[in-house]
Simulated scan of single mutants.
Amino acid sequence: MKIFIVLAVAIAAVSASKDQIVNLAAGDPKVMLGLFNEFQWEFGREYAPAERRMRLANFQRFVKDAARYNEQEEDVTYGITLFADLTEAEAENMRGFNATGLPAANEDDDAPQEINPKFNLGSNHQSRMGPAKDQGRTNACWAFAATAVLEGQSAIVNGRYVSLSEQEVADCTQGSTVASGGFHNRALEAVQRTGHLTTHANQPFTHRDGYRCITSHQNALPFRITGVHQVRGDNGLATALAGGPVASGMAFDRQLSAYRGGIYVNTSCMYSRPNHAVTTVGYTSSYWIVRNSYGTGWGEQGHVRFTRQYNNMCHISSYAYYITVQRTGQEKEE
C-alpha cells in the first residue's frame, strides 16, 4: 500500500514539474522509489527481483546526476529519460558511430560547397519531417541518421513526408551493422549506389541485421543521389542545411542522456570521442536543431538544441554529410 501512496504522490508532483520532482527525489528515498515505480510503468520496464535492485541503483545514480546538472545550469532542463535504469555499457551500446578512420572536416577549407539551390527552402527542415524515430537498443543510429536525411530530401522534392526503411539502409551498407554500428556517410553512399530505398511499411526495422540487401520492394525515392559530401565546419553545416538535412556524427555523453529541453551547452563533450550519429535539421543564429533517434520521449520531442556559442559543439560539424540530388526522370539543369 505504501508503494502506491508514494507513487501517487510522485505522479502528482511530476505532473506539476518534472524537473522539481527529480531534484526532490535526489534527496528523498521515498520520492525516489515512487519515481522509479512510475518510470517502470511509463517505459514498460519489468524486472525480476534481483535485477530490480540493480536497476533501482542505476536509476538513483541517474536521477542524482540529473539533479546536479539542473543545479549547474539555469537554461537547460535535465530529468528522467529512457536511459535512467541502464548501465553505462548498455547506454553506450545505443551509440553506434566510430569516427576512427574517417577524416574530420577542415574548418579552414574555403572551397565552395555544392548544394541543392533549387530546393533552398530556408534553414529549418524539422516541420517537413515526421516524428523522431526510435532505434531501440541497437547500434543503428547511423542508419537512422542517413534515412532521416533521405526522408527530409524526399519531402522537399515531393512536398510530402514518407517514412523510409532504415532496415534496407542497414542491410545494404557494407561494413556497417545494426549490432556493431556503422557510418552514416557510407549508408548514404550505399543508397546512391543502389539508387533504391523503399518505405518503412514495406520493410520495417527489425532491430537486427538482415541476411542480404533486398531492393525488390517498390522504390520510394523521388530522386537519385548525385553526390555525398562532407561539410566544412560550422559555416559549411549552415550552407549545407540550405539544401536539406545533414547526417552528423557527434559526442553523446551521460549528461546529454538526461537532456529534457533548452539550449544545450557542454564544452566537455569536445574532449570526448564522437560515438553517435544524428541528423541536423535546422539552425538559428543561436543554436543547431538536432534530431535524434531515441523516439519523441527524449529531449524536445526527440530533438536537442545545440548552442552555436562555441564552434563545432560536441563535434557536430566534424563528421557531417549531406547529399545533392536530381529529381527522378528529369534532366539535370545547368
Rank of each mutant, 00 (worst) to 15 (best):
F62A: 06
V157P: 10
E46C: 15
V304F: 01
A320E: 00
Y264R: 06
T296E: 06
I316N: 06
G136F: 02
M94S: 10
M270T: 09
G299A: 07
A148Q: 10
A145I: 02
C314Q: 00
E333F: 10
V22R: 05
A201E: 03
F183P: 03
S272Y: 12
G329C: 04
N116T: 02
V76R: 04
M270P: 07
M32Q: 03
I289W: 04
S17T: 03
D19T: 15
I5A: 15
V191M: 10
C141T: 00
L221V: 09
L102S: 02
V9D: 13
N185D: 15
V231K: 07
Q174W: 12
K133G: 14
V278R: 00
T280L: 11
L256Y: 03
E107L: 07
A25K: 01
V265A: 11
L197G: 03
R45A: 13
F223W: 05
Q326M: 09
A13P: 11
H303A: 08
Y310R: 12
V63R: 08
N58C: 12
A148L: 03
A143M: 01
F306L: 05
T198S: 14
K2W: 14
E38Y: 15
T296W: 01
A220I: 04
C141D: 03
A190P: 11
V228H: 07
T206Q: 14
G79H: 08
Q218P: 06
F119G: 04
V231A: 07
S176F: 03
A105C: 08
C314E: 01
